[in-house]
Amino acid sequence: MSFRSTLHIDHRFLTHTLLSLLLLSLLPASLHAARGANSGKMEVLPSQKAAPAAVFLDAQGTEADLRRQLRLKTGVTELSADLAQTRFSVAPVSTFGFAPQQGLGLALVSQSPDMLLERTAPAPNAYEIHKLADGSALVVGFVSADLKPQLTPQLRPKNIRLALYSNPSEKAPHIVAVPLSKLAVDQMPHRLDPKNPNSPVVLEMDLQSSSNRQSPHGGQ
């Protein structure tokens, strides 16, 4: 066999070997791509954070004591001294303030819940507002005892008609905190004694089973 023939055969053998190695190097990637295509995996978008459940405090005591117990349960503290007034969206998380009944009513009716909060209650019938650690809002008030079974389940099967009083009474002795994002109202709160500006206030509303608006988190 001539030298030229031997060189031609070696060249063909080398070419064949290189092509085989190239195909082998591509094979794992192809198998991996096929395996991924057949796995049926889908990108899962992060779920929307659920609104907090209502907090019903089954306890007895003075109004000040009940409020103190509820604040411990929801994990909030008083706004700092340098925040005499602030909007909910910029208030620090895990704090509480007070909203005048007219301010809360306007925020709920207009579905623009970024209300003005005050460090101390501007009136005896102001509503207490809790800004939780996740930035969501709870409205504090007092309800009748028969509402407890409907308020305590985290997942309610239907909407609840609710009368939320600013202060306790024989008719509404139990303190509760309800998620603002689940409240729907069609009227402003009204005083029980129209002639007394400091009279306890009642706000009639629907507590819905799901959120109807975004709470203005703005946590700090």
Rank of each mutant, 00 (worst) to 15 (best):
P179I: 03
R191Y: 03
L116M: 13
P194V: 14
R161G: 12
M115V: 14
L164D: 00
A133W: 04
P179S: 15
E204R: 13
I160H: 01
P189S: 06
I175L: 10
S144I: 06
T152W: 02
P197L: 15
A184M: 13
V202T: 13
L207T: 00
G135Q: 05
P197C: 15
P168K: 09
P194R: 09
P157S: 07
T152Y: 03
S166I: 04
D206H: 12
L203Q: 07
K131Y: 04
I129Y: 04
R156S: 08
N196W: 07
P168S: 14
I129W: 03
Q154C: 04
V202Y: 03
L183I: 15
D206P: 01
Q208P: 00
P173L: 08
E118V: 07
D146E: 12
V139A: 10
A184T: 11
S136A: 12
L192G: 06
R119E: 07
D186L: 10
R119P: 02
L138T: 00
S166V: 03
A145M: 10
A121Y: 08
N196R: 10
I160A: 02
T120N: 10
V176L: 09
V140A: 06
P197A: 14
A163E: 11
M188I: 08
K158E: 13
K131F: 04
H174L: 14
K182G: 00
L132W: 00
G141H: 01
S209T: 15
Y127Q: 07
E118D: 06
A126I: 09
D134Y: 02
S136W: 01
K182C: 07
A172T: 04
P153T: 05
L132T: 01
I129N: 02
G141Y: 01
D186R: 12
L116V: 11
E204F: 09
G135D: 03
L138I: 03
Q187M: 15
